[in-house]
């Protein structure tokens, strides 16, 4: 664009705050599990395993109990295809947001499914958590890089 007197100047700005939050004993155990390459749930009042775990049962408000390992495979309950990922999305290639009910869990968890196309995604399909390499896991949900179709490499 020619630099004429009436061209409007623009400038790229970034506003960023480096918050950190304390996670408490239950989410902390979940994140510690992710760092260890495991997915941890909490047992609710009726024996239902809640994943990700909550400190209190959402129906009875009683404290949740024993922490148990679930997955790493599970079943897709619902999904939405993202054909054009935005910069803030966890994957750079097209992917699906999925609600995954992990084996042993009574609730479903939101994550991403790395699949080649929407034709490769369906409800009830079996998927598996694909963790990032052990040395790169720090205790955050991104320690699971993505879910992938079960049985794939």
């Amino acid at each position: 664009m020619a630099d004429s007197a009436d061209d409007v100047l623009t400038s790229a700005h970034v506003l960023e705050y480096p918050y950190s939050r304390s996670v408490g004993p239950v989410i902390g155990a979940f994140l510690t599990g992710l760092r260890d390459g495991k997915i941890i749930g909490a047992t609710g009042s009726g024996g239902v395993v809640i994943v990700p775990p909550t400190e209190y049962d959402p129906y009875t408000a009683e404290p949740t109990g024993e922490m148990v390992e679930v997955g790493p495979e599970g079943t897709v309950e619902s999904w939405a295809w993202v054909g054009t990922p935005a910069p803030q999305h966890p994957l750079e290639t097209p992917f699906a947001w999925v609600l995954v009910r992990l084996d042993g869990a009574g609730t479903s968890m939101l994550h991403v499914l790395d699949a080649p196309s929407p034709d490769a995604v369906s409800t009830k399909m079996r998927v598996r958590a694909d963790f990032v390499a052990e040395g790169e896991r720090i205790g955050r949900i991104q320690d699971i890089r993505a879910f992938v179709p079960a049985g794939s490499a």
Binding site: V8, L9, T10, S11, A12, H13, V14, L15, E16, Y17, P18, Y19, S20, R21, S22, V23, P25, I27, G28, A29, L31, T32, G33, R35, D36, K38, P87, E134, I138, G139, R140
Partner: peptide, 27 residues
Amino acid sequence: QRGPSDERGPVTTLATPIRLDYVFSAG
């Protein structure tokens, strides 16, 4: 509560930065 393979202790904090990229137009 440590994981069997980790000496860092349990995870107690989570970095949750918020970031806004935008283009300012001066008019």
